[in-house]
Simulated scan of single mutants.
Amino acid sequence: MLDSYRLRLLVAVADTGSIAGAAARMGCSAAAASQQLAVLEREARAQLLERSARSVRLSTAGRVLTDHARRIITDLEVAAREVAAAGSETAAHLRIASFATGTRRIMAPAMIAMRRRQPLIELTFTEIEPEDSVPAVVAGQVDVALTHQYAGFSGPISNGLHQQLVLTDPLLLAVPAFAAPPSAPGLESSELRAFAGADWISGIAVQGFQAVTEMACHLAGFEPRVKSRADTYSVVLDLVAAGLGVALIPRSAVVQRPGVTLLTITAPVNLARNVHVTTRTSDRSPAVAAFREELIRQGRAGRRR
């Protein structure tokens, strides 16, 4: 294996034309430089220098190795800069991911703030649901993910992961305006079992949105009659407005729709999804830590909005 220090010494000989000049550039004595060059010749198994009493010059093999050495040294310098940047809070490349509603309320504001505070950090984003983004973080395909977990459900396998709470997002009940119970404006609330006989709108997948709908209704003592399914909350709200049923909606996913009334759920209690920032425990990059803290700041700001 050729040593990078000795390769630099060989390049210095080529540039200065002497071992003494190379030694001065490298900060060592001429005797030490000569000794190291002899070791390099043994490593290369070739005569690299043609020595005489008063001069030294590169042999053919020495010129070939010097050309390679210049490229190797350049590559090493580039690698050192990129590694230093990856470990810096001010210059790095972060691969980030989030689910859709988390992007709008937390991730997008965090990206804007991060670009303003740390413009040298390059951000690349992918929209992924937690069931896919958590494995992507574990596999090293994503550095920072905004994920969620519904209260009452076990979380994904998190060995090797660091998860920090960003926001607790209460679930509301979206009902057609004509079906809302009479109450003072702004104080609408209801127990979930009051809608045991209603048609329900739920998700398509067997996890997440659909699962929490069924769990909440079971806690309230009934089986929901799911008549419509949709994968996005905006479509769910459109279906509620059209009178096709009622649905659970995280507060952060709410977009005002004419004909929809949102009710606070008084029973069962503590229906919510917990939003986390998920990273690898082994990733101690300052840039990752800085972006994690930015997401937490945006979560606090989201609670005040």
Rank of each mutant, 00 (worst) to 15 (best):
R300W: 05
A32P: 02
Q141M: 14
A179Q: 11
V175E: 06
E127Y: 07
E129F: 14
P130S: 08
P224S: 03
E214F: 01
R117C: 06
T60K: 12
L40E: 03
V275M: 07
E122A: 13
I249L: 11
E89I: 14
F195E: 10
G259N: 10
M114G: 02
V78R: 08
E82A: 02
V288E: 06
A151H: 05
R115W: 02
P185H: 04
F195C: 08
S18Y: 01
T16R: 01
V83Y: 14
V254R: 09
R297E: 03
V134F: 06
A194P: 00
V235K: 08
R115P: 09
A267W: 15
L295P: 12
G21W: 10
S202F: 05
N159T: 15
R300K: 12
L10A: 00
H162W: 13
Q164H: 10
D238N: 12
L161K: 05
I204N: 01
A53G: 13
L48R: 00
V134T: 14
L165E: 15
V254P: 13
V138E: 12
L239E: 10
D3K: 00
A14W: 02
S190K: 05
E129Q: 05
M107I: 09
I157D: 04
F195D: 07
H218Y: 11
R251I: 01
T213G: 07
A194Y: 03
Y150N: 12
Y150P: 01
G299I: 12
E122H: 15
A79F: 02
I73Y: 03
V11F: 04
V142C: 08
T66C: 14
G208I: 04
G155V: 02
S282F: 06
G197A: 07
R54N: 07
C28S: 04
A205D: 09
G27W: 01
E223K: 08
I128P: 05
R229Y: 04
R284I: 05
A97H: 02
D67T: 13
L10P: 06
V226W: 12
L94W: 07
D132T: 10
E293S: 12
V212P: 01
F291I: 05
A272I: 01
P258M: 12
A30D: 12
G152K: 03
T90E: 13
V78F: 11
I73T: 00
E50V: 06
S88V: 02
T66N: 08
A44I: 09
M111E: 11
V39E: 13
V64H: 15
A79W: 00
E214P: 05
D169S: 06
A113P: 00
R280S: 09
R284A: 14
E127V: 04
R63A: 13
R193D: 13
A205W: 04
L248T: 09
N274S: 06
G155H: 06
P185I: 00
N270E: 15
A241Y: 00
A272F: 07
A12S: 07
V206N: 13
I19W: 09
L167R: 11
V269P: 07
R54V: 08
A20L: 06
